[in-house]
Nucleic acid binder design. Structure first.
Length: 280
DNA sequence: CGGCAAACCTGCGAGC
DNA sequence: TGCTCGCAGGTTTGCC
């Protein structure tokens, strides 16, 4: 489910029920996620108050009033569901319940278990092993064309590969990399190092724009819901290229029959979608 | 060091 | 209907 816009949608959905709430009970049913859930997660969180729910790239940060921060990553298939009534009996993929003092249950579900929940008690959560190496958040002030160009300089990999690398920019994934490159008119095959100057300007602007548009739409719902209150995001209807192999390019006036429309190919194991006529 | 495939898991839809 | 295959929004590892 989640790249940056989906995680931001989850954050916004959880904030009204979790911020300022005391956690009464935290039920951990399965510890073995991508990294094991710490044995003291429940005892650290129970009785504490959630001060804010923040986000760094694709991580949710539950900042507690006792200096603990819970880091949550949704992986590929993770999602959160809010139950204001007693929750249904947990299924096999319902790994953790966060229950507030007024009996709201926030349930973490993740069939593929690529997600994780861990704890930081260091007072410097941004120095945490999982966050330390992340590049700038593309919606933050630290992200701009100069910064992007500097991070692409000298890199031999493709621009797609560089943008998928969370050290370059933190929060993009397979969908939004394809969409950003489409909006910027840059081929995913182009060498990362060659994206400088005006091209870097266009790309930085396209990344910001596509993420902002996607957040406004409540993210993309490919399989199931995105928002913890069950609302569907609808940005998938605005995809320019992702999942549209063979369709006419929405920005092209060229002859579809001749161009073949949008192409799909596999780049380091992941599908890339692009329009060869518009992206160079 | 850099880049890429494989591995970690389960579910779903397409095609036979 | 039921099976197999390929594919899926992420990240880390280990190999060239």
């Amino acid at each position: 489910m989640p790249e940056l816009p989906e995680v931001e949608t989850v954050r916004r959905g959880l904030a009204p029920v979790l911020e300022n709430a005391h956690l009464k009970t935290v039920v951990v049913r399965r510890e073995k996620l991508r990294i094991p859930i710490p044995g003291d997660l429940a005892s650290r969180l129970e009785g504490a108050r959630v001060v804010t729910i923040g986000r760094r790239a694709k991580y949710l940060l539950l900042e507690m009033d006792n200096a603990a921060v819970a880091l949550i990553h949704l992986g590929m298939s993770g999602h959160m569901t809010i139950y204001k009534e007693p929750p249904p009996p947990p299924g096999p993929h319902d790994h953790v319940d966060f229950i507030t003092e007024n009996d709201v249950c926030v349930r973490f579900t993740d069939p593929r278990r690529f997600g994780l929940i861990t704890l930081d008690t260091s007072d410097h959560v941004h120095e945490h092993k999982l966050l330390r190496h992340l590049g700038p958040d593309p919606l933050s002030n630290e992200f701009n064309a100069i910064e992007l160009a500097a991070r692409l300089k000298g890199r031999a990999t493709s621009i797609k590969g560089a943008l998928m690398d969370q050290k370059t920019v933190a929060g993009l994934g397979n969908i939004y990399v394809s969409e950003s490159l489409f909006r910027a008119g840059i081929s995913p095959k182009r060498k990362a190092a060659s994206v400088q100057g005006g091209r870097a300007e266009k790309l930085a602007a396209a990344i910001r724009e596509v993420l902002t548009d996607a957040i406004s739409a409540g993210g993309s719902s490919l399989r199931d819901h995105v928002s913890p209150d069950g609302e569907l995001g609808y940005f998938q209807h605005q995809f320019g290229v992702y999942g549209r192999e063979g369709e006419p390019c929405p920005g092209c006036t060229c002859d579809w029959a001749k161009s073949g429309g949008i192409r799909r190919f596999v780049q380091s194991g992941r599908s890339t979608y692009y329009c060869p006529a518009r992206q160079r």
